[in-house]
Design a protein around this nucleic acid. Structure first.
Lengths: 143, 143
DNA sequence: GTTGTGATTGTATAATTGTATTATTGTCGT
DNA sequence: ACGACAATAATACAATTATACAATCACAAC
């Protein structure tokens, strides 16, 4: 259990919503080096109890921080400060990341016994269909 | 120690649960012929240690695969590939694996800030260049 | 051969984690 | 007052983990 709760002060009378107060203060703690990569944050329920608020409010703050890639929330495991790549690495990742991902995808397709043309066709199908994020991955039911 | 662990990559930040990531990837490895009938899988604790997760999560994946009759888990003995899927199932697994890989690639490209068209173009370049290496597992070590 | 002990295997149950959905509350504009 | 909308809370849920357990094996002692 983390003494982070003691470092966060919320003002219930403030016009700033509680969940934004939490977001802002955690951002500041990370910027100040008070929270480092890999540090585990208190659970939503721990922090909520310490701050005497509902844990869903903490969860909302954590969700925002997760979306901005500052933390990583993992159901059943907890929430952690996420490794923020340095700007140079970030740029290098973007520069080379796409090609590497493409190579990796092609290799996977070949391992599965498909031709490069089939790999490209599959990509087109996915682009046309549900373009966005990772799919529910419906694995087949036994029969 | 089975080197299967090295072939399985999990993304703790993915919305896809860890146990389903394991299920899917083992299905793909079987479909691709990387795992054959009678092969012993790593124990739940071995694989869990290698992936830095709890062994119950691996056990849950194995249980699903066991219910699919793809593997056979035996208390006190270990886990083995039970039967090669029927050609129809195998083809279905292959197709599913390809779609999943394409979706994953597209998601990675979008995450890097590229458009779907750029993703497709990058794939074409890699196909033309005859990409030598399979680039394994860039990201996602801890947390 | 049998038995016993310890190590290693998967299993079962419950506790802990974040998530999704819905209801309640509060505030502001009209 | 009223209605709309954001913030918060209540409830149920899903994923992961912790803990204890049962089956199997290896191997030594008898």
């Amino acid at each position: 259990m983390n003494e982070l709760a003691g470092k966060i002060q919320i003002d219930l009378r403030s016009s700033e919503p509680i969940y934004l107060q939490i977001v802002r203060q955690i951002e500041q703690l990370v910027a100040a080096g008070s929270l480092k990569q890999g540090d585990q944050l208190p659970t939503v329920r721990e922090l909520a109890t310490a701050l005497r608020i509902n844990f869903n409010t903490v969860a909302r703050a954590y969700r925002l921080l997760d979306e901005e890639r500052l933390i990583s929330t993992q159901r059943g495991r907890g929430t952690y400060i996420w490794e923020m790549p340095t700007p140079e690495i970030q740029e290098r990742l973007r520069a080379h990341g796409l090609e590497e991902a493409a190579r990796s995808y092609l290799a996977a397709a070949l391992r599965l016994g498909f031709s490069p043309a089939e790999a490209a066709a599959a990509l087109s199908r996915v682009m046309a269909g549900g373009g966005g994020h990772d799919a529910p991955a419906d694995h087949f039911e036994s029969f």
